[in-house]
Simulated scan of single mutants.
Amino acid sequence: MMKGIVISILVVLAMAHLMVQQGEAIVNCGQVDSNLAPCVSYLSKRGSLDPACCAGVQNIKNLAQTTDDKQAACECCKAAANRFPNVDEVTASTLPGKCGIAMNIPISKTTNCQG
């Protein structure tokens, strides 16, 4: 009986460890892309700032809590900005502020996300 309890505890601990791997970001580019999608026309200077865009920026900030998550979100923002050649760098870099959100994840084509 005691041996079964010990094995059960070890299995639960192993599963918990696998679920919380250190150094692995939980933010993925699909999440970042879907949250930034309402921002594309604004960032390309073809439309006004949509409230859905600011909601997306807030969602990205909420998703990216750890350093690894922030770096992953930054890389995804950089990749997204590079997929749209019409994205204005100044507009992109000031987007969080325009939404009233303090966020240290830059939206830029050229940022160094590791630093």
Rank of each mutant, 00 (worst) to 15 (best):
L63H: 02
N35C: 09
C74I: 09
L49R: 05
T91R: 13
A55C: 01
N28S: 04
V32G: 04
V87L: 09
L95Y: 09
S41E: 14
D33I: 05
P51L: 04
A80V: 05
V27N: 00
R83G: 10
L63I: 00
A55N: 05
K78Y: 05
T94Y: 07
V87Y: 03
P38F: 15
E89Q: 15
N86D: 13
I26S: 01
P51E: 04
G97P: 06
Q65R: 12
V90Q: 14
T94K: 14
S41H: 05
Y42M: 07
E89T: 12
V90F: 12
N28C: 02
T94G: 07
N62V: 00
K70P: 15
Q31S: 03
Q58S: 01
N28A: 01
N59H: 00
R83A: 11
T66F: 06
L36A: 06
D69Q: 11
C29P: 05
Q71L: 14
S48G: 14
N59M: 00
E89D: 10
N82R: 09
R83F: 08
S34H: 05
N35H: 12
T94N: 09
C53Y: 03
P96S: 06
T94C: 06
P38L: 15
L49S: 06
G97R: 06
Q31Y: 02
N35S: 13
K70W: 15
Q65H: 08
D88V: 07
A92N: 10
L63R: 01
K45S: 14
R46D: 13
N86E: 12
N28V: 04
Q65T: 11
A92E: 09
Q31C: 00
N82H: 07
K70V: 14
Q71N: 14
Q71S: 15
N28L: 01
I60K: 01
V32F: 03
Q71I: 15
C77Y: 07
A81S: 12
T67M: 08
V40R: 10
R83L: 08
F84E: 12
A64C: 05
D50E: 11
N86V: 06
